[in-house]
Every structure is written in structure tokens, then in C-alpha cells.
Amino acid sequence: MPERDDEEVLRLTGLRKSYNVGLPTEVEVLHGLDLSIHRHDFAALIGPSGSGKSTLLNILGLLDSPTAGELVLLGRPTRELDDEARTALRASALGFVFQFHHLIPAFTALENVMMPLMIAQGRPSRQTVEVAQQLLHQVGLGDFTARRPDELSGGQQQRVAIARALVTRPALLLADEPTGNLDTHTAAEVFELFRRFNREFGCAVLLVTHDPRLSDTCDRVIRLVDGAIVEDTRRSS
């Protein structure tokens, strides 16, 4: 049961997603999902390939829209939002970490971390710079602020990406195979970072993973098979 102060960040009701709508090849990949995510959740989304994990993650991230059903993010229904409003909500409420770090090569580590704020606010204020430096410090890259992505290792790049995802203080952090590209040791470190930010910032984390060792340590495991949630278990950490 969620605690009292554990506010609901996201709610899905009857979510369906089809591709090739209206064509003979129409195929439904998500069949009426209901899901609720709370601020203190540290959840793993698992399931075999092709089960619809990525599609679900894209919909949760407002990158893709559902065919039917409603997604309520921070109390706001998102169905009717236009691209501008979706983009704004996405930028303020959500953080993304992808399997391949996806930093912008032309900018330094610090600039990459500040990017979401620079996009929203323009030229970074001193406060923005401090927040970003602080985050880089927290992910253990305090000395690498001026490096370009290609001067960093894979694990370091992923840590920069995590700092970037957190710079807007999102309510929900979505991570798609965030450690899939890293060796075991680095993966554990990165995973630990998610844990820490979940506790310290009160930022809900939902991560897609194939790695049972990672999902086993999560507080909540959501298993998706053939576009339906077949398991949603919580355990106290």
C-alpha cells in the first residue's frame, strides 16, 4: 500500500496502442493497461522482447500517444494536449535515460547536463550552472565538467545522461535499458545512482531492463507479456 505522502505521479487507465490503425495490417500491441506509479516507486518493467515494453515507455514519456485510454501525468490528463503542451509537460515532469547515453557531442558534459534547462530558459543562470555542477559531482564526475562526450567512457557518459535527466527535478525518471550497454561493475554503479536519486530526490524511477539481477533489487516489478501486465508485485526494500 502506498504511504500517505506518496502522491500519485502517473496513472494509466485502459491504455491501448495499435499500429497501422485502419489498415488490414492493424495490430494492437498494448491491450488495455491500468497502471499507477507513485513518487517513491522504484520499479522495473520487465518482459520478453516484443512484449511492448518500449512502446509503453514511449507512451509514458509522452513521446508517443495511445490509441485509446487515458494517461494522467501529475494530475493532468494528456489526451487532448497539442505538441507544444506535451513537450512542455514532458520537459518539466519527466527525465529520460536511454540505453545509448545520447549526449549531444558538440556540447561539454556540463552543457549536456544543463541542456533541458537551457532549452526551457535560454542562457543558463548561475544557479543553473551550480545545480548542474552539483549533479555532476553527485554522479562522481565533478572533475569532468568541461569534457566532451567523446572524451568520456561509456559509464561516464551514462552518468552524465542520468545527471541530465535529473536536472529538471522530474517527478518520474524513465530509463530504457540504462545499463544494457555497460559492464557489470559499471552497471551496478549506475544502478546505485538511480537508487540514491530515488531516495534523495523523491523521484519515481521506472526502468526497463532485461537483467534479472537488476530487477530483483527493485521495490516493484511490473511484468509485461504480449501487451498485458501479467504481474505487478511490490516488496519492501
Binding site: 514519456g61 545520447h102 532549452i119
Partner: peptide, 16 residues
């Protein structure tokens, strides 16, 4: 393309 996608995911509006 990928960088554009990332920038969009991070809140870059179409107009921007």
C-alpha cells in the same frame, strides 16, 4: 536524427 530526437525528448519544441 538521433540528436534531434534527444533534444525533442528533452523539451525542445518543434518551433525551436
Amino acid at each position: 536524427t538521433r540528436q534531434i530526437g534527444i533534444l525533442r525528448a528533452m523539451g525542445t519544441r518543434q518551433k525551436q
